[in-house]
Measured scan of single mutants.
Amino acid sequence: DYEVGESVTVMDGPFATLPATISEVNAEQQKLKVLVSIFGRETPVELTFGQVSKI
Protein backbone atom coordinates (compact mmCIF):
# COMPACT_ATOMS: atom_id res chain seq x y z
CA ASP A 1 0.00 0.00 0.00
CA TYR A 2 1.13 3.50 -0.77
CA GLU A 3 0.80 6.45 1.61
CA VAL A 4 0.83 10.22 1.13
CA GLY A 5 4.30 11.60 1.81
CA GLU A 6 6.03 8.34 0.90
CA SER A 7 9.07 8.47 -1.38
CA VAL A 8 8.96 6.33 -4.52
CA THR A 9 10.92 5.95 -7.76
CA VAL A 10 9.15 6.40 -11.09
CA MET A 11 9.69 3.24 -13.17
CA ASP A 12 7.90 4.09 -16.42
CA GLY A 13 7.36 6.96 -18.83
CA PRO A 14 9.28 10.20 -19.35
CA PHE A 15 10.11 10.49 -15.63
CA ALA A 16 11.53 6.96 -15.27
CA THR A 17 14.34 6.65 -12.67
CA LEU A 18 13.40 9.95 -10.99
CA PRO A 19 12.51 10.06 -7.30
CA ALA A 20 9.03 11.32 -6.42
CA THR A 21 6.89 12.00 -3.36
CA ILE A 22 3.29 10.79 -3.20
CA SER A 23 0.80 13.64 -2.80
CA GLU A 24 -2.45 11.72 -3.34
CA VAL A 25 -3.54 8.06 -3.43
CA ASN A 26 -6.62 6.70 -5.23
CA ALA A 27 -6.74 3.02 -4.24
CA GLU A 28 -9.99 2.34 -6.14
CA GLN A 29 -8.50 3.36 -9.49
CA GLN A 30 -4.96 2.22 -8.57
CA LYS A 31 -3.65 5.73 -9.30
CA LEU A 32 -1.24 8.05 -7.55
CA LYS A 33 -0.48 11.72 -7.81
CA VAL A 34 3.20 12.29 -7.20
CA LEU A 35 5.50 15.30 -7.13
CA VAL A 36 8.59 14.86 -9.29
CA SER A 37 11.44 17.32 -8.77
CA ILE A 38 12.53 18.61 -12.18
CA PHE A 39 15.07 21.43 -12.51
CA GLY A 40 14.49 22.31 -8.86
CA ARG A 41 10.71 22.59 -9.22
CA GLU A 42 8.14 20.07 -8.00
CA THR A 43 5.92 18.96 -10.87
CA PRO A 44 2.69 17.03 -10.21
CA VAL A 45 2.34 13.83 -12.25
CA GLU A 46 -0.46 11.24 -12.26
CA LEU A 47 0.72 7.62 -12.43
CA THR A 48 -0.65 4.13 -11.84
CA PHE A 49 0.57 1.90 -9.00
CA GLY A 50 2.51 -0.16 -11.57
CA GLN A 51 4.53 2.86 -12.72
CA VAL A 52 6.25 3.44 -9.37
CA SER A 53 8.39 1.42 -7.00
CA LYS A 54 8.98 1.94 -3.29
CA ILE A 55 12.48 3.09 -2.42
Rank of each mutant, 00 (worst) to 15 (best):
D1H: 14
D1K: 13
D1P: 13
D1I: 14
D1Q: 13
Y2M: 05
Y2C: 05
Y2F: 14
Y2Q: 01
Y2S: 01
Y2T: 01
Y2P: 03
Y2I: 03
Y2D: 01
E3C: 11
E3F: 13
E3D: 08
V4R: 06
V4I: 11
V4D: 03
V4Y: 05
V4N: 04
G5E: 03
G5A: 04
G5M: 03
G5L: 03
E6D: 13
E6H: 07
E6F: 05
E6G: 08
E6M: 14
E6N: 07
E6L: 06
E6Y: 05
S7G: 08
S7W: 15
S7T: 15
S7R: 15
S7A: 12
S7L: 15
S7N: 11
S7M: 15
V8Q: 01
V8R: 01
V8P: 00
V8M: 02
V8I: 10
V8G: 00
T9A: 06
T9R: 13
T9D: 04
T9K: 09
T9F: 13
V10F: 03
V10D: 00
V10H: 01
V10G: 00
V10I: 15
M11L: 13
M11K: 10
M11E: 07
M11D: 06
M11W: 05
M11H: 06
M11P: 02
M11G: 04
D12R: 07
D12T: 12
D12G: 07
D12E: 12
D12L: 08
G13Q: 01
G13A: 02
G13W: 03
G13N: 02
P14V: 08
P14K: 08
P14G: 04
P14R: 07
P14D: 08
P14M: 08
P14N: 05
F15N: 03
F15D: 01
F15R: 02
F15C: 07
F15Y: 14
F15I: 02
F15E: 02
A16M: 08
A16I: 09
A16Y: 05
A16L: 05
A16K: 11
T17R: 10
T17I: 04
T17S: 13
T17L: 09
T17V: 04
T17W: 11
T17P: 07
T17A: 09
T17D: 10
L18S: 06
L18K: 07
L18Y: 14
L18D: 02
L18V: 05
L18P: 00
P19Y: 10
P19Q: 14
P19L: 14
P19W: 09
P19H: 13
A20L: 03
A20V: 05
A20I: 02
A20H: 02
A20T: 02
A20P: 00
A20R: 01
A20S: 04
A20N: 01
A20K: 02
T21W: 10
T21E: 07
T21L: 12
T21F: 09
T21D: 03
T21A: 05
T21Q: 08
T21C: 09
T21M: 10
T21N: 05
T21P: 02
I22R: 00
I22E: 00
I22N: 00
I22V: 12
I22T: 01
S23R: 10
S23G: 06
S23D: 06
S23E: 11
E24W: 12
E24A: 10
E24F: 10
E24Q: 09
E24R: 06
E24I: 06
V25Q: 02
V25I: 12
V25T: 04
V25M: 05
N26Q: 08
N26K: 07
N26L: 10
N26T: 05
N26C: 11
N26Y: 13
A27D: 09
A27M: 13
A27E: 11
A27G: 09
A27W: 14
A27Y: 15
E28T: 10
E28S: 11
E28P: 10
E28C: 08
E28I: 11
E28G: 11
E28K: 11
E28F: 09
Q29H: 11
Q29G: 10
Q29A: 12
Q29R: 10
Q29E: 14
Q29D: 11
Q29Y: 10
Q29M: 11
Q29I: 09
Q30H: 10
Q30M: 10
Q30C: 10
Q30Y: 06
Q30E: 09
K31R: 12
K31E: 05
K31D: 02
K31Q: 08
K31F: 08
K31M: 12
L32I: 10
L32G: 00
L32N: 01
L32R: 00
L32D: 00
L32P: 00
L32Q: 00
L32T: 01
L32H: 00
L32A: 02
K33Y: 07
K33F: 06
K33V: 15
K33T: 14
K33W: 10
K33H: 07
K33N: 06
V34P: 00
V34A: 07
V34D: 01
V34K: 00
V34G: 03
V34E: 00
V34H: 00
L35S: 06
L35T: 09
L35R: 07
L35V: 13
L35A: 05
L35N: 08
L35F: 08
V36D: 01
V36R: 00
V36F: 03
V36I: 14
V36M: 05
V36L: 10
S37P: 07
S37D: 12
S37H: 13
S37L: 12
S37N: 13
S37Q: 12
I38Y: 12
I38V: 10
I38L: 09
I38M: 08
I38W: 12
F39C: 15
F39N: 15
F39Y: 09
F39W: 10
F39E: 15
G40S: 04
G40K: 03
G40F: 04
G40D: 08
G40T: 04
G40I: 03
R41E: 14
R41Y: 12
R41T: 14
R41L: 14
R41C: 14
E42A: 10
E42T: 11
E42Y: 10
E42M: 12
E42L: 14
E42N: 09
T43S: 08
T43I: 15
T43R: 05
T43P: 02
T43N: 07
T43E: 14
T43H: 12
T43G: 05
P44S: 15
P44W: 14
P44H: 14
P44C: 14
P44T: 15
V45M: 09
V45Y: 07
V45Q: 05
V45K: 02
V45R: 02
V45A: 07
E46V: 08
E46P: 03
E46A: 04
E46F: 08
E46L: 06
E46I: 09
E46S: 06
E46Q: 06
L47P: 01
L47Y: 05
T48V: 07
T48E: 12
T48C: 10
T48Y: 11
T48Q: 10
T48M: 11
T48N: 12
T48F: 12
T48K: 10
F49D: 01
F49Y: 11
F49A: 03
F49T: 04
F49E: 02
G50E: 14
G50T: 12
G50M: 12
G50Q: 12
G50R: 07
G50S: 14
G50F: 09
G50Y: 08
G50P: 06
Q51V: 04
Q51I: 03
Q51C: 04
Q51N: 06
Q51R: 03
Q51K: 04
V52I: 07
V52M: 02
V52L: 03
V52F: 02
V52S: 01
S53Y: 05
S53H: 09
S53W: 04
S53F: 05
S53L: 08
S53E: 12
K54V: 06
K54E: 03
K54G: 05
K54S: 06
K54C: 04
K54N: 05
K54H: 07
I55D: 09
I55R: 12
I55Y: 07
I55S: 11
I55W: 07
I55A: 11
I55V: 13
